[in-house]
Design a protein around this nucleic acid. Sequence first.
DNA 1: GTTGCGATGTATCGGGCCGATACATCGGAT
DNA 2: ATCCGATGTATCGGCCCGATACATCGCAAC
Lengths: 199, 199
Amino acid sequence: MLELAILGLLHESPMHGYELRKQLTTKLGAFRAAISYGSLYPTLRRLQTDGWITEGAPPTGMPASPDEVPLLTGKRGRVVYTITAEGKERFQELLTAAGPETYDSEAGFGVHFAFFARTDPATRLRILEGRRRRVEERREGMRDVLSRAAERLDAYTLELQRHGLDACEREVRWLEELIANERNGTTPQPPSADPERSS
Amino acid sequence: MLELAILGLLHESPMHGYELRKQLTTKLGAFRAAISYGSLYPTLRRLQTDGWITEGAPPTGMPASPDEVPLLTGKRGRVVYTITAEGKERFQELLTAAGPETYDSEAGFGVHFAFFARTDPATRLRILEGRRRRVEERREGMRDVLSRAAERLDAYTLELQRHGLDACEREVRWLEELIANERNGTTPQPPSADPERSS
DNA sequence: GTTGCGATGTATCGGGCCGATACATCGGAT
DNA sequence: ATCCGATGTATCGGCCCGATACATCGCAAC
């Protein structure tokens, strides 16, 4: 999960940990809150021993003059991570793997979705449909609770179920739209074809 | 988190692990997916060593005849957990504690909210407002991403942000309503003055 | 110039929770 | 009697988090 996200970001450009965390937080902020260093650094280490990434800038110049380091990416103490060729392969592999863990957790789905632009259409469709199925299951569960046990529960629990149900219905509709677009060959294209777009 | 949820459920009636899990899943299903046994049983053990719960039925009869056990709650092999007096105190303590971890995670908030009926009004308000602040922060972050970097991101990432933003705005509105109700002294009252109770 | 200090940045540690897995028991079908 | 799936308890390895500890840098006060 974190592995996929990190490889995806380093695929775009080399980065040090702090910057990585910042980008992760904004790019994936829609589904998960923030990435902790307590998971980031160990994962970076693991990726390194697995050979998917390396410390240090890529072979793009980099004269290695210890006191003439670039201002933004190589200061003393900073560790810049760069993806390797194997890492890029691994990234593609993870992108298309997309097992059940992809649909189950918000975070897993969010990460995969964030890299949809680099995922092949068949996999995109598979993930969207898998996700839809899970959310539909959750939705049905809540509907049952609301219809069958409405009188046993206190008003707060009831309201919680109602809110959750609403969120699920909304997500299903969102997914339906995305799936329809995928089937049309229309990529995502949300900004246009939208009735209201005042400013 | 799990501790609070378990104590809350056992506060209503003694249960064995399987049943506990089922109830947890339905009651908290709105915010978190399901509880794993891999976290349930260790937590039960911990609660036991801490003295908040005990194995075995409460002192309600229970003649301890080994082959005349009740049908639904004491079969051989089953372990029924019962909350202790100290456990009830602990439950109240956790209910009112409600630190930042309550607002930050979906799960944490969901659990606390699920027991709002047994939470005092001041704490309810504090939790709702804390949660609102967090969601607003997330919302602002996504707004920034959408307005400032709209052209740098691919359509999928953009769509993800848009969906996340929408969800945040919705949750804030929901929280506003709940807060207003709390301030009015109106409890939750979502079913809109439901005076009838037909079956 | 050196001393103090907040911001930047790297790293670890303990613990909670999860998914997978392994058993033990029960009830019913053959 | 015996097999087998449903019920139910329990553990293990691993991911991820929050808290915490350090180093270093820029800068301001003296």
